[in-house]
Structure formats: C-alpha cells, structure tokens
Nucleic acid binder design. Structure first.
Length: 401
DNA sequence: TCTGGGGTCCTAGGACCC
DNA sequence: TCTGGGGTCCTAGGACCC
C-alpha cells in the first residue's frame, strides 16, 4: 500500500515562538511584524543569526550569518536572545496537537515532524488532513506551519520547503518533474555546499539533471552518497517514519570561550563543567558511555578531535572527566590558542545490560551516589547550582546553557 | 569571517589477527 | 624480502542536517 506522509515545518520557529511568548507576557509589539532576529551573543563570540522575521528576510538577512552582517544590512534590526525552554514548550504543544492525527509521528527536530497517516485516512484524503492541521495550528496555537504532502518522507520534506510561510504543498509522483526537477541541486535535501561545485563541474545543475545523470558515474565520484542523491532526485525514499523514540547514539556539549585560552589548567576547568553537563544528560537517559571524545577549535577555526576508549562503560562524572583530561594532555599543542572546547560521549549503551568488568572497582559506588545527589539538587534548583570546588568562580565568566 | 551548538552517518587509513 | 589477502576494530576528519 502506498504510504501517506505529511511533513510539518514551523515557519521561523524560534522567532514566532519568541513573539508569542512576548505577547503573552505583555509585549505591545509582535516581533513577527518588524525586522527582527533571534541571535547569539556577540560579546560571547557566538553572534550568529538563528532565526529571522519575514521583514528581516526582505533586507537580505540570512540564517547563520553574523549579527554584524545582519546589522549592516538593516541597522534598525531588533535582536532577541534564544531560549530553548520556550521553544520546547511550543514544540510540545505542536506535537500534542499532531498526536491527535496519528501515533506514527517522528520528531525530526524541535520544529519539524513527519506524520505517517497511512492507517488513519478513511474517507478523507491526505490533503484534507493537511488543511485541517494547518488551520488548527494557526487558530489554536497561534503560529503558522508549512506542510508537505507526499508518499514518502523525502518528498514530503521537499514539498514543505517550496514556498513559505503558511503554505501547503503536495509532491506526488506525477509532480516530481514539474515541481522538483527545475530546482537547483542545492535545494535537494542532503546535498550541501561542498557537493554543489562537484556536481556543477559535471554539468549537473538542477535536480532534474541529477535525476537523469548516470547512477554509475555518480557512484564512482561520490560513492554510496552519490547513489543516495540520485535516488532522492528521482523521488525514491523507502525510509520509515521513526515514531518510536530512539536512544541517542552520542551526547555532547561544547562551548565557545569568551576569549582564547592557552592554559591547560583553564581548559581542564572547562572540561569539568562540560563533563558535568554531559554525564548528567547521560544518566538521565539511563545510559553509559564507552568512548570519550574531545574537540578543540583553535583561533584559526581549525578543529581537531581526539577520542579514547574507557576500560568499562560508565556515566560517572569523575571517570569521564579523568579520561577527558588525559585526552586533552595527549592532543594539546603547547601555546595553541583555543577558541572552543567540546566533550562528547560515544558508543553508548543502556545501563541495565552492562556487565561488570574485571577492571571495574566497587569504589565507583560512592561516586555514583555523589552524582545522583548532585543531579537531584540540580534538578530542583536549576543547572549549575552545584559546583565542584575546582569549578568555582568559572561560571561567572562562562555561561553554560 | 566580527564565523553556534547539537546531532547522524560515512570514509580512509592504520593496527592487528589469522 | 622484489613482503598475501581478508576481516575487524579503532580513530580522525568530513559532510550534512536543524
């Protein structure tokens, strides 16, 4: 049976949701109606545009460019900080509403969902349902969405991206040639800016060109990835809507430093703070890590990573931190000016299925108890209410989310 | 470049084993 | 030494997404 898929994409999500939140709290202006952006913090060297209003778009402002550039294009631009707590709240409202239509929902990101409607259509058509959802979200939740209507995930996703905002687009098999093939290859999902010039050199400029290109040649040039792109260009995608909540495969946090650091001890302090955040999230997932990965970005924006295996899976702050320090020592080049530090745990497994290793000492029990107590205090009083002695004084200088 | 942060998947090369 | 071939595991880096 042919699958019936919707892709729901919130228009200017961060900005729309911030606007609603501000209105709810007494603001007189709807920031959706003026040139405005949601941006990072320039003083923390994270000044990029995360979302923009339609009016800001008219000034040529683009997502991910610097706030500095945005201000040059529109000196009167209004800038608001991002707040994930608010986004999560509105995202949940959307998810709840969509859940009335099917239980096969995939949360693709904080502002996008795929819905598999195959079993839930009865007499109505897929397009009818899309229209209903579209109206209900606007009227009941107060923001607008684009909806893509198709027979697989890829085409639904492509369709929702066509023209914005507040639109419904279909992309069925018989519409691929007219609606998708004329678009430039850069519009194809999964085809990024590194691959565009490679294909253009082969005289492949539109999605149609790509669809008609020889699969074998693409495979030769780009490997498995080339085959995937060819299939996408032809509207082929057999992937399922992943409605069951999947466990994460890795968990990481990173931070751009207010100023470059060349002092290993200071870097270690950052690692400790990161280890606390990462292992807290790990414990919340009831998981343990086998691998620790450190990322350093230097002043020239060059990233290096270094990873190492733990001798047994763990979620202990102390053990992850000790490993992280070890990795840092191995990779840090004397006097390197570091701009960003990241810590990621990988090769995760569920806590219950772990086996006791020969190397594992029962002394972890004490540390585990400490972590649990600290987690509870953090949950009750908010993040970073508890700090280990070594980190004291650092939180004032570096803000962690 | 005044250039975020959180993820996933893939690839290439080296180490190691039989 | 004019140095096999296949498989697995591991690591660093790259590309892409929102």
């Amino acid at each position: 049976m042919e699958r019936q898929i919707l892709h729901v994409d919130v228009n200017n999500a961060f900005l729309s949701w911030t606007a609603l939140y501000m209105l709810k709290n007494g603001s007189k202006t709807d920031i959706r109606e003026i040139p405005s952006i949601i941006g990072g913090d320039e003083s923390k060297r994270s000044g990029i545009v995360l979302a923009k209003s339609q009016k800001a778009k008219e000034f040529g402002i683009r997502t991910a460019e610097t706030i500095y550039q945005a201000r040059k294009k529109c000196p009167s631009i209004q800038i608001y900080p991002s707040n994930y707590k608010i986004y999560k709240e509105y995202s949940n409202k959307l998810f709840m509403l969509l859940s009335e239509y099917t239980d096969k929902i995939e949360r693709f990101s904080i502002d996008e969902c795929f819905l598999d409607m195959t079993q839930y259509l009865m007499k109505a058509t897929l397009l009818d349902k899309a229209k209903e959802i579209h109206t209900r979200v606007r009227e009941e939740l107060g923001f607008t969405v684009n909806i893509g209507v198709a027979n697989n995930r890829l085409l639904a996703k492509m369709a929702s991206d066509f023209t914005k905002p507040d639109k419904i687009h279909t992309l069925f098999q018989n519409e691929i040639q007219t609606k998708m093939w004329p678009l430039p290859i850069s519009e194809l999902f999964g085809l990024g800016k590194k691959t565009v010039p490679k294909l253009e050199n082969m005289q492949i400029k539109t999605i149609g060109d790509l669809a008609k290109a020889q699969k074998e040649i693409l495979s030769k040039k780009l490997g498995k990835y080339g085959i995937q792109l060819w299939e996408y260009a032809n509207g082929i995608d057999n992937s399922e809507v992943k409605y069951e909540q999947e466990k994460p495969k890795s968990i990481g946090n990173s931070v751009t430093l207010p100023e470059n650091i060349s002092d290993v001890e200071k870097l270690e302090e950052i690692l400790l703070a990161l280890a606390e955040q990462v292992t807290y999230r790990l414990r919340k997932q009831q998981m343990e890590a086998n691998v620790v990965n450190i990322q350093l970005r230097n002043k020239d924006f060059v990233d290096t990573t270094h990873q190492g295996k733990l001798s047994y899976p763990t979620a202990s702050t102390k053990e992850i931190y000790v490993k992280a320090k070890e990795l840092l020592k191995e990779m840090y080049k004397p006097n390197a000016a570091i701009r960003l530090v990241g810590l990621k745990v990988d090769n995760l497994e569920n806590k219950d299925k772990q086996q006791i290793s020969l190397f594992q000492e029962k002394t972890d029990e004490k540390q585990k108890k400490i972590d649990t107590v600290l987690d509870k205090i953090n949950e009750k009083y908010g993040y970073n209410s508890v700090t280990r002695a070594k980190k004291m004084g650092l939180n004032d200088k570096i803000k962690f989310k």
